[in-house]
Design a protein around this nucleic acid. Structure first.
Length: 274
DNA sequence: ATGACGGTGTCGCACCGA
């Protein structure tokens, strides 16, 4: 593959890899992302379409689970080199929500943060505990000298500007003060919210629920995020949402969300020993 | 206060998501 000046990283909650494979392949073909994080595979490991993705030019690693959750990382023209499977901090946690790998010179964490509804309740407690585990783990990632990205479905509406009607969502787990505060603490480690950084005043949505024609009426949420450590944030050039995927027949409720960065220098070849 | 839509498997109901 010829060297490229830029890399495109994207996150896409597919809401069922089995049902959504045709959309995924059409999107890969049209947009040619270099690094892709997928969430909500809703499939066992053995049902992951590794062959179809290989034919499309992508190597993959994945962490499946029956019916729910499930995450994967794809790399155009290579295979992600796995560095972590599962978020540390709770040996009892069996939900497939975190996968981390080196891809095209970037450490990429693909995450599917718990939804947390209904709140209050055990699911909300699990969400908050998961966020604390994430914050603990990412402390060791943000200051690395090389590029690092945390990308995925965070299930966090960061501010009221990120939801079409804050009032109708005010009891929802996605915008509770404790959740927003935890997200703020994560960012305060030194992560850049890429979409917001490049489009500070724009209304940006990445999710529209299936009810009441919310996509057609553009009543959405911004909950899929790409967070960049300082070495990667310096390389940020563009960001957007591939809304056309949400407009297809039988779509996921999320749209692919992407950034473009200046490609890190190719790893220097080691001087030949003599 | 509820449910709307859509995915999954236990498969036409129940559960989950956001």
């Amino acid at each position: 593959m010829p060297a490229r000046k830029t890399l495109r990283l994207a996150t896409f909650n597919v809401n069922g890899i089995g049902t959504r494979l045709p959309h995924l392949l059409a999107w890969l073909e049209r947009e040619q992302p270099d690094i892709v994080a997928l969430q909500e595979l809703k499939a066992l490991d053995e049902a992951f379409p590794v062959g179809a993705l290989e034919e499309a030019g992508y190597g993959a690693i994945w962490q499946g689970q029956r019916s729910w959750n499930g995450v994967a990382l794809l790399a155009r023209g290579s295979v992600p080199v796995e560095s972590r499977r599962g978020l540390p901090g709770d040996g009892e946690d069996t939900q497939s929500r975190y996968l981390e790998a080196a891809v095209h010179g970037i450490v990429v964490a693909c995450l599917y943060l718990p939804n947390g509804n209904p709140q209050p309740g055990p699911k909300f407690d699990y969400k908050l505990a998961w966020m604390e585990r994430l914050i603990t783990h990412t402390r060791g990632l943000v200051d690395l000298p090389h590029p690092v990205a945390l990308i995925g479905d965070f299930n966090v509406i960061p501010t009221d500007a990120d939801v079409y009607d804050p009032k109708s969502w005010r009891k929802d787990a996605l915008l509770q003060p404790e959740v927003r505060e935890a997200f703020e603490r994560l960012l305060a480690q030194g992560w850049t919210d890429a979409l917001r950084k490049l489009h500070p005043d724009e209304t940006i949505y990445t999710f529209w629920d299936y009810f009441r024609q919310h996509f057609q009426r553009d009543r959405g949420l911004r909950i899929d995020h790409l967070l960049l450590n300082p070495p990667l944030a310096k390389r940020l050039r563009a960001a957007g949402v591939d809304r056309w995927v949400r407009a297809l027949e039988k779509p996921s409720d999320h749209a692919p969300t992407w950034i473009e960065v200046t490609a890190p220098a190719a790893p220097r070849k080691r001087a030949k020993a003599d």
